[in-house]
Amino acid sequence: MENKRTAFDYVLMVLFIGMIGITVYPFLNVLAISLNDPMDTMRNVNFIIPRKFTWSNYSYIFSENNMLKPFLLSVLKTVVGTGIGVICTSMLAYVLSRKDFYFNKPFTILFIITMYVSGGMIPEYLLIMRTLKMGNNFWVYIIPGMIWVYNVILMRSFIEGLPMALQEAAKIDGANDFVIWYKVILPLCTPTIATVALFQAVGQWNSFMDTYLYARELPTLQYVLYEIMESAQIKVDPHAAAMGQMKNAVSPMSVRMAITVVATVPILIVYPFLQKYFVGGMTLGAVKD
């Protein structure tokens, strides 16, 4: 642009720096509280640089409060759920992209309908808990939400955009449909796979309702954070604090913020790298069927 900057450009700049501030400030505030001495935090919660730096909140949640198990469960659920989800989504998307498949139309309709009509919470709850008896079983996190039809449609339109000649060439070489999916389609689908994997991984990592409804005995990180938020009853020993053993003292606020950081950081590390994929995926998502 050869235009020189006008006052408007500077106003915009200031405006957006302000916006970045509003977006980022709460996160920095949380991070600072989690790294600050709990007793000091009680004075005033409004700061973004730890006043009295300490790791004690983190060592507390991972040792005494035993956050390790929920953390590992969240990781396991995210990895398994995303892996299975991506495989199933791409497989189904490939089959539905094959116009020569005899059941293409009816199967496609069967899946699309579910995007608009759902039985609702209670019938789903009863199906999973009473009929299938999947309550408090690890697979309740994985199986019921295995496929998002939206993602299938996203991937199908991507596969339909690939040159058909590749599939035909593979067929002439004697490859069956499964091999074509595995050897030809999957490697070419990397951009959509990245998008779908991100969507599903974020969904799994962030989900809280599935634990809340179906598996309270298998608490994930998000659910533990919810419980702490609701009860605000971290066992703080007031005597220990009064006796001057300040080092081991914790406050509910500090612990909550430390867990908040642990639950947030993995996602913040991943998403900026996948940005170019999901922005494309979002706009492609507006396709009609």
């Binding site: 059941f103 199967f107 019938p123 789903e124 199986i143 019921p144 069956n176």
Partner: peptide
């Protein structure tokens, strides 16, 4: 192969999406 790659998901969608509809 196309059938093998889609029928399991059709069964899945019937169980987890259509049976709840029947729950109406």
């Amino acid at each position: 192969y196309l059938l093998l790659m889609s029928v399991p998901f059709v069964i899945w969608v019937i169980i987890f999406k259509y049976i709840p509809l029947w729950g109406w």
